[in-house]
């Protein structure tokens, strides 16, 4: 795999919109062509070369291209947005929309990601070795389709609104999460290894949520069904299964009503 390295050389005065930093765009381009790609700061259209030192080679296709960003890009948005293949590694933190609308490939952030990361993702892997902001794997405003495929793995804590309108894929949070987990979900799987505050599975139609720690306040529309022994993301244990949200509409399959499932680890 050919590797292109970006070294930040200038901190943008306002936030930088860099929707071109992804293997799909870099593949098959020379270093000069990559440096000439546009970035936006407010109304100004500038070039990638003004903010990053670019070295290495790009592969012929996105799948053969790996982008390594060495340094803090916590004021750069849209890293790996809509990427379909290849790899991006950020050795630092990024701003909003990391891996948003991602379709394939792998994006690793060795730091934190801000809000709206993995937004409406349909495939690929987003690995965050740090904390994630709000709206991880959620739907874009007004869309009824949140994350539909792929995997998001966060080692630290998540924010609020994880997996809103989620319809598929998997989100695993190593730490704690804020309010609203899987709100309006109609599929997919969310694993929270730490504690959750409240509003877990509110208005959920179907899908699965696993919480290893405590939920401070349960939604009133969840009913205890039974205890089950499971292995979830490499951890075995006994879980209490709740079904809900009883206030929400639910589909029927072969005459049986399908509910959202909330598993709480003992």
């Amino acid at each position: 795999m050919a590797i292109i390295t970006l070294n930040p050389i200038q901190k943008p005065s306002l936030l930088l919109e860099a929707d071109n930093i992804k293997p799909d765009v870099f593949a098959g381009k020379s270093l000069d062509e990559i440096k000439a790609l546009h970035v936006f700061m407010g109304t100004d259209q500038l070039t990638l070369g003004e903010f990053f030192e670019v070295s290495g080679d790009s592969g012929a296709t996105a799948a053969d291209t790996k982008i390594v960003i060495d340094g803090d890009i916590s004021r750069v948005k849209y890293i790996g947005m809509k990427m379909t293949a290849g790899e991006v590694v950020v050795n630092g933190s990024t701003d909003m929309y990391a891996g948003a609308w991602m379709q394939g490939g792998k994006l690793t952030v060795n730091g934190d990601v801000d809000a709206f990361s993995g937004l409406a993702m349909t495939g690929g892997e987003l690995i965050v070795n740090g904390n994630a902001g709000n709206y991880l794997g959620a739907a874009y405003r007004g869309d009824w389709r949140g994350m539909r495929g792929g995997v998001i793995r966060v080692s630290g804590n998540g924010g609020s609104d994880i997996g809103t309108f989620m319809r598929g894929g998997e989100i695993i949070i190593g730490g704690d999460v804020d309010v609203h987990v899987g709100t309006h979900a109609e599929g997919g799987k969310i694993v929270v290894k730490g504690d959750a505050k409240s509003r877990v599975g509110g208005q959920m139609v179907k899908g699965e949520i696993y919480v290893f720690g405590d939920i401070e306040v349960m939604m009133p529309g969840y009913q205890y069904r039974k205890d089950v022994d499971l292995e979830v993301d490499g951890v075995s244990g006994r879980f209490a299964l709740y079904e809900g949200d009883m206030g929400e509409r639910h589909p029927k399959k072969k005459g049986v009503t399908i509910y959202g499932q909330l598993y709480m680890k003992y």
């Binding site: 306040v217 939604m219 206030g247």
Partner: peptide, 17 residues
């Protein structure tokens, strides 16, 4: 949010805490 949700549960005649 919890109270509004509970009202929906009540509309459907489901049981509440």
């Amino acid at each position: 949010y919890e109270l509004l949700s509970a009202i929906r549960v009540a509309f459907r005649g489901e049981k509440l805490p």
